[in-house]
Design a protein around this nucleic acid. Sequence first.
DNA 1: TAGCCTAGAGAACGCGCGTTCTCGCACGGC
DNA 2: GCCGTGCGAGAACGCGCGTTCTCTAGGCTA
Lengths: 191, 191
Amino acid sequence: MDLIDANQRLLAAAERLYYPRGIHAVGMDEVRAEAGVSLKRLYQLYPSKEHLVAAYLDARDERWRARLRTHVERHAVDPGERLLAVFDWLGLWFAEPGFRGCAFVNAFGEIGGDAPLVLAVVQRHKVLFREYLLDLARAYPTPDPEALADELLLLAEGAMSAAAVLPEPRPDVAARARRAASALLAAASVG
Amino acid sequence: MDLIDANQRLLAAAERLYYPRGIHAVGMDEVRAEAGVSLKRLYQLYPSKEHLVAAYLDARDERWRARLRTHVERHAVDPGERLLAVFDWLGLWFAEPGFRGCAFVNAFGEIGGDAPLVLAVVQRHKVLFREYLLDLARAYPTPDPEALADELLLLAEGAMSAAAVLPEPRPDVAARARRAASALLAAASVG
DNA sequence: TAGCCTAGAGAACGCGCGTTCTCGCACGGC
DNA sequence: GCCGTGCGAGAACGCGCGTTCTCTAGGCTA
């Protein structure tokens, strides 16, 4: 097995273990075993757990945003509909088995304080999500796309938190967020 | 020192240590030392760390909601203004030194999976916050106070996440949330 | 075949945790 | 005065972690 293979297996194993259980609950040896990689290789690729965690989050960021982008592009063309499609996708995500909230917010709560590499990846993810919403908002007829993007960002972030934390039976969080987003779109529209 | 005293000192110490640093980063002995209480007393009051953490979160929940309620009652009488005052208070909270996001969301990310006592307190806190918003929304002239409360809850939750995670310089998250809340209020109003 | 580099398996190390146990001591009832 | 009970102080224990080290085996070159 070469380095590239081992790397992919490690990242896949990290995803399978870290997201459902949290980071500090999963030891390096468990990741190693799940990936079928020797500890030597692991530390050759990632000199510390923090590096591995940052890489896991980085990979998750790419995948998460790609999935969102794909859904939006496939299901809407009108700028307003595209912004609302973000919330439809959130609803699909929330309904997936094993959903446990935003991995980045969770990681921040768990090790945000001391882990600069991880903090940087978390912040970058949120900035990139915000920029994606801003891209969509710029296509929408509103005088202040930044404000609109920020407002929708807050709704989306709130939906992720609420979907993760609220006990069952919970109101359909994504649908509520979509309704609010629709109202904000109408309020921000110049047409 | 009697049990009541020791309990108060422990809860105060837990608050000072757990919120800024996270839960798993603070050991029982450190809480004991900060509180000036013997380990024996600690385990007499809380038979495990999970019990102590749950009690810390419970106390924080009470204090957090009381502070919010006090601010809202002191600064607004009109129902719409009261709902908006929630976001003003969030802005004050975010600006406090040491702000590190919602302690309950952080605790969920850190140990949500396996810690039923903690999970229950987290969920209860969010439910009570939602009920408070619902109380305020019921005084507002809208056909669906539940929907309005849920929408504002999402904005508030999103603001907490964004204020915690987004890197500096960050947009004034609470003000953005307030603006969005204002738009949602207008959209929900029957008058 | 002999030597050598590499890699895997996993033992070992040092540490910090949650929890329990031990010890010595002060204080209250007879 | 004396015994027992409860207390604080902190040592001890068992465990699991992140990280490093050791041993062994195999395949490559000459």
